[in-house]
Design a protein around this nucleic acid. Sequence first.
RNA 1: GGAGGGUUGCCCGAGUGGUUAAAGGGAGCAGACUGUAAAUCUGCCGGUGUAUGCCUACAGUGGUUCGAAUCCACUACCCUCCA
Length: 414
Amino acid sequence: MAKGSIHISVDEQIQQLSHGAQDIHSLDGLKEKLALGRPLRVKAGFDPTRPDLHLGHVVLLRKLRQFQDLGHQVVFLVGDFTAQIGDPSGRNSTRPVPTREEIEHGARTYAEQAFKVLDPEKTETVHNSTWLEAMNFSDVIRLAGKYTLARMMERDDFQNRFAQHQSISVHELLYPLAQAYDSVAIDADVELGGTDQLFNLLVGREIMRDHGKAPQIVMTTPILEGTNAREENGRILGDKMSKSLDNYVGVAEPPLEQFGKLMSIADGVMWRYYDLLSVKNEAEVKALKAKCSEGANPRDAKLALAQELVAHFHSESAARDAQEQWIAQFSNRQVPESMPEVTVPLEQEAGMWLVRVLSKAGLAKSNADARRRVEQGAVHVDGTKVSDPSLELNAGTYTLRAGKRAWAKVTLTP
RNA sequence: GGAGGGUUGCCCGAGUGGUUAAAGGGAGCAGACUGUAAAUCUGCCGGUGUAUGCCUACAGUGGUUCGAAUCCACUACCCUCCA
């Protein structure tokens, strides 16, 4: 538990903390809090129904880590109770309710991944079911009485859903209030969230004031665009990184996977990633950028970024291996170093239809899909392109390829 | 409580009785190209050893009909207006 006082000057802290933050409400308030000289309680809530962290979450975690490095205390709030409501932020429909087990499992997985960035020594983990479950209906009514429908409907998500005639359940209106009450319960000095959380975070200030507490400082971090984003005229266009859009780089993914995904981002988007995710400071990034516009190959800058991030989530050596493999496989089009090994039993003596082998081995999702791949010239057996969809294979081991990224070493056994 | 509108493939969305495995777009997949798993172009895009065949599919159930995503009834869910 972090105790004692903080020795870095307020101005220095403000400079570091405000870099890369989207909104701070308010900057003066933050200065006052910092001037107290004690470690601040910095709250960040997370949704345990989505345990797979990706780089989008890392933007926020990095900022929390920065607070920790300055000597502050992070309160890591597991939203195990609020998960039953489902955060309406950015949603266009009501969420399904997860089970208790899903929530618990999610919380563990999430913490495991989050501590790749956070300092466990300066993190206090709490569950909001501790106090929210204890509230009875009159407590809830009293809390709900502190906010009005009109104010609740100021929120974009609700407004849009309402305008588009989509349903909004009444319990969803309670979500921001529950989150706000969390801040009361844990005496938050500061709460961090993505920009999509701004509304919820601000409700926290009002509810804290209502409970006679000093309102928390609200800080938001930008939403990271997904790996399929584009850059046009200096603006980044594209959806935010999310698992459901499959444009994410997961914290727990294998090194080569992370590396490849990072290498696939558009050149312009790479600088956004540098700004929000790299430990390189502004000046270093600027220098790198200048070098590229003077003719250096942007690929090298991207390799460096991928290196840094993979090393952060795995290790230096894993990052180096990933880079070597990636260059071999995709730049030089060699056979990948490692590929899944699959054993498929021959179903009859004579041999097995290649198309069937491909789908059995998981390289195609159906026979029809496998046939299509063969006809489209994507299938190679031991390095030789196959275009006859009726080819049969005998017992033995083959290196099969059914597209750029679908490889397997398949053994056919009688 | 009353009146009305809606529910189509992974997503959005056209389709009001046969020629519809269902237009179009997006996503996805493959090939070409590329420093790249980007962009672009081309093709594919329910399943079935390929069959002018069969099976599955237009919220669910039942019905009308030679024939239904399309008509009818009921059920579920969503929305709008009035109270």
